[in-house]
């Protein structure tokens, strides 16, 4: 009984990763469906600078995209680790490969987070004040194309 209590919450054997893989997977099914819908099918197939920067200026979308990014990278990293554990059993190559997998995910996380976070809300204010002539032109030309 004491042994059982001592182990609760440690998740060291892989139970936490197993559950999180399924939770992130479910999140991603929803997120990817919406991602495809808005970025590939409802916008006429073309992704433009304006669309992306306008959307990413909003803190709500920044948060959504960050959650999306973390889910993808956890799910991808854990997927790689599952494959490594299935086929590589000697400790040395296994530890190296698992570390490389998470290193790749961390690099991608940093890259993605910087992209999402550093798009300034000032862009939105410029639009509201109508001072960014280039932005208005771009929107008008997009309106013409539509």
């Amino acid at each position: 009984m004491l042994k059982m209590l001592a182990r609760t919450g440690t998740g060291s054997g892989g139970s936490n990763a197993w559950v999180l893989q399924r939770i992130s997977g479910l999140l991603l099914v929803v997120a990817l469906f919406l991602h495809y819908l808005f970025l590939h099918f409802l916008n006429g197939g073309d992704v433009t600078w304006n669309e992306v920067t306008t959307r990413l200026a909003s803190p709500l979308f920044k948060t959504i995209d960050l959650i999306f990014l973390v889910s993808v990278l956890f799910h991808a990293g854990q997927g790689l680790v599952i494959n490594i554990h299935d086929y590589i059993h000697r400790p040395a190559p296994r530890v190296i490969l698992v570390s490389l997998a998470w290193l790749l995910m961390i690099v991608l996380l940093i890259t993605g987070t910087v992209t999402i976070v550093t798009l300034e809300p000032g862009f939105l204010q410029e639009m509201q004040m109508g001072q960014a002539a280039g932005v208005i032109d771009a929107i008008q030309s997009q309106g013409v194309a539509l």
Binding site: V52, L80, L104, L108, T111, T115
Partner: peptide, 25 residues
């Protein structure tokens, strides 16, 4: 996994300004 790695890198070109982004797109 391979695709997502490339995708995140491509989208990160957003940071380099409209010109680079549009060219990559």
């Amino acid at each position: 996994v391979l695709y997502v790695s490339m995708h995140i890198w491509v989208v990160s070109t957003l940071q380099l300004g409209e010109g680079t982004f549009e060219a990559t797109m």
